[in-house]
Design a binder for these strands. Structure first.
Lengths: 125, 125
DNA sequence: ATAACATTTGAATATTTGCTCATATATTAT
DNA sequence: ATAATATATGAGCAAATATTCAAATGTTAT
């Protein structure tokens, strides 16, 4: 789908922003993904972009775990862990099952961990 | 490499945190990556986890661009774009070349965009 | 019933972070 | 030289976010 020209012919006069390369802007804007997709990506990456959450996900990639085991493993309060698990669950990155008073969390989507693994390779240079 | 037991035998007495499954904690802790790697990953994802930066990266994936063209394309001030480009450059996600007074930015590492693409697939469900 | 325990949740706090605004730097044009 | 332009940068502000603390919920044991 080709977008309409986003760069008006008279933009030098009407736009506050300076434009140097009309042609490049026009070309790139035609291939820009819609904002919603990019926003969703940013939201996904935002969840990965936290030390606590990434350690939780990495741990759950090894084994299903309950909240207080995670808290002990990561050296954090159970409340802090619970708050983060809620965010991860909202994003459907983890799921849980209840067994008596204990709640076990696990990864909801193996596919997501592929992103994780690929980033891990990159970080190791 | 097998780590030493991180769960002391007498932990129920000495630890403030309750431990329910010693065996699982021991197992998972043996396979936890070192904190520095996970921290580096979190830092990388943090950079991806912002609407502006992800749009910049997506645009630069189409074509090298200068600062003020990016500003126009994304509808933001040149200063805001410049600040974000600085962060992306620090992380070696983008590089730049100078031609007169114009600075052209481009992706520094095609490999990084693989992470981007994989996440994009996931977001589209 | 009551007590103990695992977890959740809301409010408060502290930190981080993205943008704006003003200014500085660097290059080109006159 | 001076002016104009492209970019960079520092300070300040507002919004977002992670954790703590206290209290609520739900389950099991006595």
């Amino acid at each position: 789908m080709i977008k309409d020209n986003i760069v008006p012919d008279n933009c030098e006069e009407t736009c506050s922003q300076t434009i140097i390369h009309k042609d490049i802007i026009q070309l790139v804007s035609e291939h820009m993904s819609d904002d919603i997709s990019l926003d969703n990506m940013a939201e996904l990456f935002k969840l990965f972009g936290d030390r606590t959450r990434i350690r939780i996900l990495h741990a759950l990639n090894q084994s299903e775990m309950c909240v207080c085991d995670l808290a002990y493993l990561l050296g954090m309060t159970q409340s802090a862990i619970s708050h983060q698990l809620r965010l991860l669950k909202q994003a459907k990155l983890v799921k849980n099952r209840k067994e008596g008073k204990i709640v076990y969390y696990s990864l909801a989507d193996r596919h997501v961990m592929q992103i994780f693994v690929q980033a891990f390779d990159h970080v190791k240079e």
